[in-house]
Design a protein around this nucleic acid. Structure first.
Ligand SMILES: [Mn+2]
Ligand SMILES: [Mn+2]
Ligand SMILES: [Zn+2]
Ligand SMILES: [Zn+2]
Lengths: 138, 138
DNA sequence: TAAACATTGCAATACAGTTGCATGCCGTTT
DNA sequence: AAACGGCATGCAACTGTATTGCAATGTTTA
């Protein structure tokens, strides 16, 4: 079990400390993304700043990606694709549920190409769809 | 000049105070959207809270729309379309410029339809494209 | 072992957003 | 005219999240 996360961290050139392994393990179990505050509530023994820096390191090394959930909250989720340090490739849609307030990665739903006005140079895109998720809809 | 903004406010059922007319006038001149903090810097004589409540009122009455700029900052821009109180219809793309940090409405660029996984119910969408704007690209 | 470096925790700060309350303004009622 | 009411405004205070500084601790290297 812990073997897996350790390998994962090393492959991203992240020093696999106990803390980092526990955080990564937690993120891997997670069905949706999570905010720093909620992570702090879930892993009570950790200091908030440690979690903050852990997530920051993970993001910089291409292990998790940051999600602006469209309601002003930043969330984090494990990268699905072949993201690298300093270069993320997650161009999938994110879904914010008004009912459970969770934000889901929809890795199979790509952001469609958009034709911009002249002289606008695209670098990244973020598409947030808001509504009711498949759990809450029932 | 002031005539126009007064009519505009009344048509949205907003009491046209001097403050509100000045704010609306400023927003109409603006080429892009603006954050509360930047608005405060531009209209120094106004209290921050007054501006906050003014923008909130404008948004509730369908005069401006809120934009999450994808970098954690909330911005505001005049509604282009036929927005109503409690019901906005701005489904256009927004563009964030990494160079000038401004966020532009692209009213002619609609958000394309997206097919969601089963049981996800869409209510709103937000598409942010990030890159270099047409002014900074030159 | 000693120096060098990395990780962590605690305190403090930065900053956007928001609320509470007192005051002032303006039109209406008595 | 005086009293009343509702709305608009300003100031202070508070919230919540993000971020930095620094000291303490742990780990690696020479
Ligand atoms: Mn994602
Ligand atoms: Mn817009
Ligand atoms: Zn839900
Ligand atoms: Zn620009």
């Amino acid at each position: 079990m812990k073997q897996e996360v350790e390998i994962m961290l090393k492959s991203k050139e992240i020093n696999p400390t106990v803390n980092r392994m526990l955080v990564l393990d937690y993120l891997l179990e997670l069905k949706s993304s999570i905010s720093l505050t909620d992570l702090e509530l879930s892993l009570e023994s950790f200091d908030r700043v440690t979690l903050y820096r852990t997530l920051k390191t993970f993001e910089e090394r291409g292990l998790v990606h940051k999600i602006e959930d469209g309601m002003g909250i930043t969330k984090f989720a494990i990268c699905q694709d072949s993201c690298e340090a300093g270069m993320h490739h997650d161009l999938h849609v994110h879904f914010y549920c008004h009912s459970c307030k969770q934000t889901f990665c929809l890795p199979k739903t790509q952001i469609p190409e958009v034709k911009l006005p002249e002289n606008y140079q695209r670098q990244e895109m973020e598409l947030i769809v808001k509504g009711i998720c498949s759990v809450c809809v029932k």
